[in-house]
Amino acid sequence: MKKFNVTVNGKTYEVEVEEVGAPQKAAAPAAPAAAPAPSPAAQPVQKAPAAQPAPAAPVVPKGPVPEGAITVKAPMPGKISAVKAESGASVKRGDVLVVLEAMKMQNDITATADGTLHEIRVQVGDNVKTGDILAVITQ
């Protein structure tokens, strides 16, 4: 056992911490001890395997935004649950481009202008932050 002083909110506490795997000191018995009972064979402690990093999601090409193009940005952080339009399609203002799930609600993200959908920059399952470009519309 090791003793430490820990201060929490201005109050000091003395704590004892047991080291794992360290031999323990035998406490002085108060009375004669009886013969110890046979103990089952100790099982070796196995360490959990190291966590593997999750494989990176495939990256959608994100080239420069064409001059004069209109970008449709994420209004809030969330996860893309559906892509409703394809690159090259003609879109009108108000057409649903993607569905963004945020706080257990489905939010339709719509085209902000008429034009041609130059590219969709997200895929189903992507996590987006506020202001991330979801789509690019050219006129």
Rank of each mutant, 00 (worst) to 15 (best):
P36R: 03
P36G: 06
P36H: 04
A37T: 14
P38Y: 06
P40F: 13
A41R: 08
A41L: 06
Q43H: 10
Q43E: 14
V45A: 15
V45Y: 06
V45L: 13
Q46E: 11
K47C: 07
P49N: 09
P49G: 11
P49C: 06
A50M: 12
A50T: 04
A51I: 03
A51W: 13
A51Y: 14
P53K: 11
A54D: 14
A54E: 15
A54N: 14
A56F: 04
A56V: 09
P58T: 11
V59S: 13
P61V: 01
P61F: 03
K62W: 03
K62I: 00
V65G: 05
V65W: 14
P66W: 08
G68K: 07
K73M: 06
A74F: 02
A74L: 05
A74S: 07
A74Q: 04
P75V: 04
P75T: 01
P77M: 13
P77G: 05
G78R: 00
K79H: 00
I80Q: 09
S81R: 01
A82V: 01
A85E: 14
A85K: 15
S87Y: 01
G88F: 12
A89G: 07
A89E: 14
R93H: 02
G94K: 04
V96A: 14
V96Q: 15
V96S: 15
L97H: 10
V99S: 08
A102E: 02
M105L: 10
M105H: 09
Q106N: 12
Q106P: 07
N107G: 08
I109E: 14
T110H: 06
T110V: 03
T112V: 10
A113C: 06
D114Y: 06
G115S: 07
T116S: 15
T116V: 08
T116K: 13
L117R: 11
H118R: 08
E119I: 00
I120L: 03
R121Y: 00
V122R: 14
V122I: 03
